[in-house]
Amino acid sequence: MSAENPRVEDFLAPEEYPAWHPAAQGLAQDLPGESGAYASTRTATPYTGKASAAAVSSRDDGEVAEAAEPARQSKYTSRRNPNLKKGFRKPPAKYAARSPFAPAIGAASAPDNETPQRKRSQPLFREGSALNEPVTDEEMLVQGVTPMPEKRGRGGKEPESEFTRAKNIVLNQLAASPKSRAMLEKKLVEKEISAEVIEDILNRFEAVNLINDAEFADMYVRTRMNVKKLSRSAIRRELKTKGVEGELAEIALEQRTEEDERADAHELVRKKLRPSMNLGDRAEKEKVMRRLVAMLGRKGYPAGLAFSVVREEVEAYACEMGMASEDSYFSYD
Protein backbone atom coordinates (compact mmCIF):
# COMPACT_ATOMS: atom_id res chain seq x y z
CA MET A 1 0.00 0.00 0.00
CA SER A 2 1.44 3.40 -0.96
CA ALA A 3 1.66 6.34 1.42
CA GLU A 4 -0.38 8.54 -0.90
CA ASN A 5 -3.52 6.42 -0.50
CA PRO A 6 -3.70 5.26 3.13
CA ARG A 7 -6.59 3.08 4.16
CA VAL A 8 -8.39 2.94 7.48
CA GLU A 9 -7.68 -0.79 7.68
CA ASP A 10 -3.93 0.03 7.88
CA PHE A 11 -4.30 1.91 11.20
CA LEU A 12 -6.56 -0.42 13.20
CA ALA A 13 -6.80 -4.15 13.54
CA PRO A 14 -10.09 -5.80 12.48
CA GLU A 15 -10.98 -6.74 16.03
CA GLU A 16 -10.65 -3.13 17.13
CA TYR A 17 -13.53 -1.97 14.89
CA PRO A 18 -17.16 -2.06 16.06
CA ALA A 19 -19.31 -4.97 14.90
CA TRP A 20 -21.29 -2.85 12.43
CA HIS A 21 -18.13 -1.69 10.62
CA PRO A 22 -17.27 -3.53 7.35
CA ALA A 23 -13.63 -3.75 8.40
CA ALA A 24 -14.65 -5.84 11.44
CA GLN A 25 -16.03 -8.43 8.97
CA GLY A 26 -12.85 -8.59 6.94
CA LEU A 27 -13.97 -6.35 4.06
CA ALA A 28 -11.37 -4.02 2.63
CA GLN A 29 -12.14 -0.53 1.37
CA ASP A 30 -11.85 -0.07 -2.38
CA LEU A 31 -9.70 2.94 -3.19
CA PRO A 32 -8.12 3.97 -6.48
CA GLY A 33 -4.53 3.00 -6.98
CA GLU A 34 -1.63 5.03 -8.31
CA SER A 35 -3.04 4.92 -11.83
CA GLY A 36 -6.40 6.19 -10.66
CA ALA A 37 -8.20 2.88 -11.38
CA TYR A 38 -9.85 0.66 -8.77
CA ALA A 39 -8.12 -2.62 -8.15
CA SER A 40 -11.33 -4.45 -7.14
CA THR A 41 -11.75 -7.91 -8.56
CA ARG A 42 -15.52 -7.84 -8.38
CA THR A 43 -17.51 -8.01 -11.64
CA ALA A 44 -19.99 -5.20 -12.11
CA THR A 45 -23.61 -6.39 -12.42
CA PRO A 46 -25.76 -4.37 -14.87
CA TYR A 47 -28.96 -2.89 -13.46
CA THR A 48 -32.05 -4.75 -14.66
CA GLY A 49 -34.65 -3.23 -12.39
CA LYS A 50 -35.10 -6.53 -10.51
CA ALA A 51 -33.42 -7.90 -7.43
CA SER A 52 -30.80 -10.45 -8.46
CA ALA A 53 -29.75 -13.52 -6.57
CA ALA A 54 -26.31 -11.92 -6.06
CA ALA A 55 -27.77 -9.12 -3.93
CA VAL A 56 -26.69 -8.96 -0.34
CA SER A 57 -29.25 -10.43 2.05
CA SER A 58 -29.56 -9.66 5.77
CA ARG A 59 -29.72 -12.43 8.28
CA ASP A 60 -31.28 -12.52 11.70
CA ASP A 61 -27.92 -12.44 13.47
CA GLY A 62 -26.87 -9.31 11.61
CA GLU A 63 -24.36 -11.07 9.34
CA VAL A 64 -24.33 -10.24 5.62
CA ALA A 65 -23.70 -12.88 2.95
CA GLU A 66 -23.83 -13.09 -0.81
CA ALA A 67 -25.69 -15.71 -2.80
CA ALA A 68 -23.35 -18.29 -4.15
CA GLU A 69 -25.18 -18.83 -7.46
CA PRO A 70 -26.13 -15.89 -9.74
CA ALA A 71 -29.70 -15.59 -11.05
CA ARG A 72 -30.47 -17.07 -14.45
CA GLN A 73 -31.56 -14.69 -17.17
CA SER A 74 -35.20 -15.16 -18.20
CA LYS A 75 -36.07 -15.87 -21.81
CA TYR A 76 -38.37 -12.85 -21.82
CA THR A 77 -35.49 -10.50 -20.95
CA SER A 78 -33.18 -11.73 -23.69
CA ARG A 79 -32.36 -9.24 -26.38
CA ARG A 80 -33.88 -9.69 -29.82
CA ASN A 81 -31.60 -10.46 -32.72
CA PRO A 82 -31.45 -7.26 -34.81
CA ASN A 83 -30.50 -9.21 -37.94
CA LEU A 84 -33.95 -10.80 -38.19
CA LYS A 85 -36.65 -8.67 -39.77
CA LYS A 86 -39.90 -8.25 -37.90
CA GLY A 87 -42.61 -10.63 -39.08
CA PHE A 88 -40.25 -12.86 -41.10
CA ARG A 89 -39.64 -16.43 -40.08
CA LYS A 90 -37.19 -18.63 -41.83
CA PRO A 91 -38.92 -21.80 -43.04
CA PRO A 92 -37.68 -25.21 -41.92
CA ALA A 93 -34.86 -26.77 -43.86
CA LYS A 94 -37.08 -29.48 -45.39
CA TYR A 95 -39.33 -26.83 -46.97
CA ALA A 96 -36.65 -24.25 -47.75
CA ALA A 97 -35.37 -26.06 -50.84
CA ARG A 98 -38.88 -26.35 -52.35
CA SER A 99 -39.78 -22.73 -51.62
CA PRO A 100 -39.98 -20.37 -54.63
CA PHE A 101 -38.14 -17.85 -52.43
CA ALA A 102 -35.18 -20.16 -51.87
CA PRO A 103 -32.60 -17.69 -53.26
CA ALA A 104 -33.92 -14.96 -50.98
CA ILE A 105 -33.57 -17.00 -47.81
CA GLY A 106 -30.19 -18.42 -48.74
CA ALA A 107 -31.33 -21.97 -49.58
CA ALA A 108 -30.46 -23.74 -52.81
CA SER A 109 -33.37 -24.88 -54.91
CA ALA A 110 -33.78 -28.65 -54.98
CA PRO A 111 -33.88 -30.44 -58.32
CA ASP A 112 -37.21 -31.77 -59.50
CA ASN A 113 -36.13 -35.36 -59.09
CA GLU A 114 -35.17 -34.75 -55.44
CA THR A 115 -38.49 -33.23 -54.40
CA PRO A 116 -39.95 -35.46 -51.68
CA GLN A 117 -43.20 -37.15 -52.61
CA ARG A 118 -46.29 -36.99 -50.43
CA LYS A 119 -47.17 -39.99 -48.43
CA ARG A 120 -50.05 -42.02 -49.79
CA SER A 121 -53.13 -42.11 -47.61
CA GLN A 122 -53.68 -45.26 -45.62
CA PRO A 123 -56.70 -47.43 -46.48
CA LEU A 124 -59.87 -46.44 -44.69
CA PHE A 125 -60.82 -49.98 -43.65
CA ARG A 126 -58.74 -52.84 -42.32
CA GLU A 127 -56.35 -54.65 -44.61
CA GLY A 128 -58.00 -57.29 -46.76
CA SER A 129 -61.49 -55.80 -46.49
CA ALA A 130 -63.62 -55.75 -49.64
CA LEU A 131 -64.63 -52.18 -48.83
CA ASN A 132 -61.17 -50.99 -49.85
CA GLU A 133 -61.65 -52.26 -53.41
CA PRO A 134 -62.76 -49.59 -55.92
CA VAL A 135 -66.29 -49.77 -57.35
CA THR A 136 -66.92 -48.90 -60.99
CA ASP A 137 -69.53 -46.36 -62.07
CA GLU A 138 -71.56 -49.08 -63.78
CA GLU A 139 -71.89 -51.03 -60.54
CA MET A 140 -72.98 -47.91 -58.68
CA LEU A 141 -75.63 -47.13 -61.28
CA VAL A 142 -76.98 -50.68 -61.04
CA GLN A 143 -77.32 -50.22 -57.27
CA GLY A 144 -79.11 -46.90 -57.79
CA VAL A 145 -76.25 -44.72 -56.52
CA THR A 146 -75.02 -41.74 -58.49
CA PRO A 147 -71.23 -41.89 -58.98
CA MET A 148 -69.18 -39.22 -57.28
CA PRO A 149 -67.34 -36.82 -59.60
CA GLU A 150 -63.60 -37.16 -59.86
CA LYS A 151 -61.59 -34.89 -57.61
CA ARG A 152 -59.50 -32.29 -59.28
CA GLY A 153 -56.41 -30.51 -58.06
CA ARG A 154 -56.26 -27.17 -56.34
CA GLY A 155 -55.44 -25.33 -59.52
CA GLY A 156 -58.69 -25.95 -61.41
CA LYS A 157 -62.41 -26.40 -60.98
CA GLU A 158 -64.36 -29.22 -62.55
CA PRO A 159 -66.58 -27.92 -65.38
CA GLU A 160 -70.29 -28.18 -64.67
CA SER A 161 -72.11 -30.74 -66.79
CA GLU A 162 -75.26 -29.91 -68.75
CA PHE A 163 -77.36 -32.15 -66.52
CA THR A 164 -76.09 -30.46 -63.35
CA ARG A 165 -76.67 -27.02 -64.83
CA ALA A 166 -80.24 -27.93 -65.80
CA LYS A 167 -80.91 -29.34 -62.33
CA ASN A 168 -79.67 -26.16 -60.66
CA ILE A 169 -81.82 -24.01 -62.93
CA VAL A 170 -84.96 -25.97 -62.05
CA LEU A 171 -84.18 -25.89 -58.33
CA ASN A 172 -83.65 -22.13 -58.38
CA GLN A 173 -86.90 -21.58 -60.26
CA LEU A 174 -88.92 -23.71 -57.85
CA ALA A 175 -87.31 -22.01 -54.86
CA ALA A 176 -88.48 -18.59 -56.10
CA SER A 177 -92.14 -19.57 -56.70
CA PRO A 178 -94.22 -22.60 -57.80
CA LYS A 179 -93.90 -23.35 -61.50
CA SER A 180 -95.65 -25.64 -63.95
CA ARG A 181 -93.82 -28.08 -66.20
CA ALA A 182 -94.35 -25.89 -69.26
CA MET A 183 -92.89 -22.85 -67.49
CA LEU A 184 -89.77 -24.77 -66.45
CA GLU A 185 -89.35 -26.23 -69.91
CA LYS A 186 -89.53 -22.74 -71.43
CA LYS A 187 -86.87 -21.54 -68.99
CA LEU A 188 -84.53 -24.42 -69.82
CA VAL A 189 -84.91 -23.76 -73.54
CA GLU A 190 -83.92 -20.14 -72.95
CA LYS A 191 -80.77 -21.40 -71.19
CA GLU A 192 -79.90 -23.50 -74.28
CA ILE A 193 -80.33 -26.90 -72.64
CA SER A 194 -80.73 -29.81 -75.04
CA ALA A 195 -84.16 -31.41 -75.47
CA GLU A 196 -82.97 -34.80 -74.17
CA VAL A 197 -81.66 -33.32 -70.93
CA ILE A 198 -84.81 -31.21 -70.49
CA GLU A 199 -87.05 -34.26 -70.81
CA ASP A 200 -84.89 -36.29 -68.45
CA ILE A 201 -84.63 -33.67 -65.73
CA LEU A 202 -88.33 -32.77 -65.80
CA ASN A 203 -89.34 -36.43 -65.58
CA ARG A 204 -87.08 -36.88 -62.55
CA PHE A 205 -88.63 -33.88 -60.79
CA GLU A 206 -92.13 -35.10 -61.56
CA ALA A 207 -91.29 -38.53 -60.18
CA VAL A 208 -90.48 -37.00 -56.78
CA ASN A 209 -93.54 -34.69 -56.95
CA LEU A 210 -91.51 -31.49 -57.11
CA ILE A 211 -93.36 -30.66 -60.34
CA ASN A 212 -97.13 -31.16 -60.10
CA ASP A 213 -99.37 -29.27 -62.53
CA ALA A 214 -102.55 -30.24 -60.65
CA GLU A 215 -101.34 -28.75 -57.37
CA PHE A 216 -99.98 -25.71 -59.21
CA ALA A 217 -103.34 -25.06 -60.89
CA ASP A 218 -105.27 -25.47 -57.63
CA MET A 219 -102.97 -23.03 -55.85
CA TYR A 220 -103.03 -20.55 -58.73
CA VAL A 221 -106.85 -20.45 -58.94
CA ARG A 222 -107.16 -19.99 -55.18
CA THR A 223 -104.68 -17.13 -55.17
CA ARG A 224 -106.15 -15.25 -58.13
CA MET A 225 -109.74 -15.46 -56.92
CA ASN A 226 -108.91 -14.38 -53.33
CA VAL A 227 -106.42 -11.63 -54.12
CA LYS A 228 -107.35 -10.25 -57.53
CA LYS A 229 -111.06 -11.30 -57.54
CA LEU A 230 -110.77 -12.57 -61.11
CA SER A 231 -113.56 -14.45 -62.85
CA ARG A 232 -113.40 -18.04 -64.05
CA SER A 233 -112.79 -17.06 -67.66
CA ALA A 234 -109.90 -14.74 -66.76
CA ILE A 235 -108.23 -17.37 -64.58
CA ARG A 236 -108.71 -19.96 -67.32
CA ARG A 237 -106.88 -17.74 -69.82
CA GLU A 238 -103.99 -17.18 -67.39
CA LEU A 239 -103.67 -20.91 -66.70
CA LYS A 240 -103.40 -21.53 -70.43
CA THR A 241 -100.46 -19.12 -70.65
CA LYS A 242 -98.83 -21.07 -67.79
CA GLY A 243 -99.15 -24.32 -69.73
CA VAL A 244 -102.08 -25.78 -67.75
CA GLU A 245 -105.30 -26.38 -69.67
CA GLY A 246 -107.95 -28.98 -70.33
CA GLU A 247 -109.08 -31.28 -67.56
CA LEU A 248 -106.48 -30.08 -65.03
CA ALA A 249 -107.62 -26.48 -65.42
CA GLU A 250 -111.34 -27.32 -65.17
CA ILE A 251 -110.85 -29.38 -62.03
CA ALA A 252 -108.99 -26.48 -60.39
CA LEU A 253 -111.69 -23.99 -61.49
CA GLU A 254 -114.43 -25.94 -59.74
CA GLN A 255 -113.61 -24.07 -56.52
CA ARG A 256 -114.67 -20.81 -58.22
CA THR A 257 -118.50 -20.86 -58.23
CA GLU A 258 -120.95 -18.39 -59.85
CA GLU A 259 -122.16 -17.22 -56.43
CA ASP A 260 -118.57 -16.36 -55.46
CA GLU A 261 -118.10 -14.45 -58.70
CA ARG A 262 -121.23 -12.36 -58.14
CA ALA A 263 -120.30 -11.61 -54.51
CA ASP A 264 -116.80 -10.53 -55.54
CA ALA A 265 -118.25 -8.31 -58.32
CA HIS A 266 -120.48 -6.54 -55.77
CA GLU A 267 -117.47 -6.03 -53.48
CA LEU A 268 -115.33 -4.58 -56.27
CA VAL A 269 -118.02 -2.08 -57.35
CA ARG A 270 -118.78 -1.07 -53.75
CA LYS A 271 -115.12 -0.17 -53.15
CA LYS A 272 -115.08 2.18 -56.17
CA LEU A 273 -118.07 4.32 -55.14
CA ARG A 274 -117.23 7.70 -53.59
CA PRO A 275 -119.32 10.46 -51.97
CA SER A 276 -117.82 12.93 -54.44
CA MET A 277 -119.71 11.24 -57.30
CA ASN A 278 -122.85 13.18 -58.27
CA LEU A 279 -125.16 10.26 -58.97
CA GLY A 280 -128.16 12.63 -59.10
CA ASP A 281 -126.95 13.95 -62.45
CA ARG A 282 -127.81 11.57 -65.28
CA ALA A 283 -124.70 12.30 -67.35
CA GLU A 284 -122.42 11.85 -64.33
CA LYS A 285 -124.25 8.67 -63.34
CA GLU A 286 -123.89 7.11 -66.81
CA LYS A 287 -120.19 8.00 -66.84
CA VAL A 288 -119.61 6.31 -63.47
CA MET A 289 -121.55 3.21 -64.47
CA ARG A 290 -119.63 2.80 -67.72
CA ARG A 291 -116.32 2.97 -65.88
CA LEU A 292 -117.44 0.39 -63.33
CA VAL A 293 -118.69 -1.99 -66.02
CA ALA A 294 -115.37 -1.64 -67.89
CA MET A 295 -113.48 -2.40 -64.66
CA LEU A 296 -115.42 -5.65 -64.19
CA GLY A 297 -114.91 -6.52 -67.84
CA ARG A 298 -111.12 -6.29 -67.46
CA LYS A 299 -111.34 -8.83 -64.65
CA GLY A 300 -113.18 -11.25 -66.91
CA TYR A 301 -116.78 -10.85 -65.71
CA PRO A 302 -119.50 -11.27 -68.38
CA ALA A 303 -121.20 -8.11 -69.66
CA GLY A 304 -124.67 -9.07 -68.38
CA LEU A 305 -123.40 -9.87 -64.89
CA ALA A 306 -121.28 -6.71 -64.77
CA PHE A 307 -124.14 -4.43 -65.84
CA SER A 308 -126.68 -5.86 -63.36
CA VAL A 309 -124.21 -5.69 -60.45
CA VAL A 310 -123.17 -2.10 -61.27
CA ARG A 311 -126.80 -0.94 -61.56
CA GLU A 312 -127.78 -2.52 -58.24
CA GLU A 313 -124.84 -1.04 -56.37
CA VAL A 314 -125.18 2.44 -57.89
CA GLU A 315 -128.91 2.64 -57.11
CA ALA A 316 -128.38 1.41 -53.56
CA TYR A 317 -125.53 3.90 -52.99
CA ALA A 318 -127.57 6.80 -54.40
CA CYS A 319 -130.47 6.02 -52.06
CA GLU A 320 -128.13 5.67 -49.10
CA MET A 321 -126.48 9.04 -49.79
CA GLY A 322 -129.83 10.80 -50.47
CA MET A 323 -129.06 11.61 -54.10
CA ALA A 324 -132.19 12.09 -56.27
CA SER A 325 -132.08 9.81 -59.29
CA GLU A 326 -133.80 11.28 -62.36
CA ASP A 327 -133.82 8.05 -64.35
CA SER A 328 -132.37 4.66 -63.65
CA TYR A 329 -132.27 3.68 -67.29
CA PHE A 330 -128.86 2.88 -68.63
CA SER A 331 -128.02 1.39 -72.05
CA TYR A 332 -124.85 -0.72 -72.23
CA ASP A 333 -123.02 -0.76 -75.54
Rank of each mutant, 00 (worst) to 15 (best):
A54E: 08
W20T: 00
S121Q: 11
V170I: 12
S40N: 11
E66W: 15
L124G: 03
M225S: 10
R7C: 02
P6E: 04
L202M: 00
V208Q: 07
K90H: 13
M183V: 05
D30V: 14
A37P: 02
K229T: 09
L171M: 12
Y76P: 12
R274L: 03
D137P: 08
E114C: 09
D200I: 02
P70F: 09
G155A: 05
A51P: 04
N172S: 14
K191N: 08
R72I: 11
E127Q: 07
K299C: 01
D260E: 12
E69W: 13
G62K: 03
K240Q: 13
S325T: 10
V221L: 02
R80C: 05
N172K: 15
K229I: 07
S180N: 08
L239G: 09
A23D: 05
K151L: 12
L174Q: 06
R152F: 11
D30K: 11
R311T: 07
Q29L: 03
R72V: 13
E150F: 08
R290G: 05
A166F: 08
D30F: 11
Q143D: 09
E259Q: 02
K90L: 13
R232Q: 08
A207V: 00
S276K: 08
R290Y: 02
A263E: 07
Q255S: 14
R118E: 12
R290C: 00
T48R: 13
P134C: 01
R311I: 04
V170F: 05
A175D: 11
I251S: 10
S109I: 10
S177W: 10
W20D: 03
T48L: 09
T48W: 07
S129D: 05
F307L: 10
A67C: 06
G36S: 05
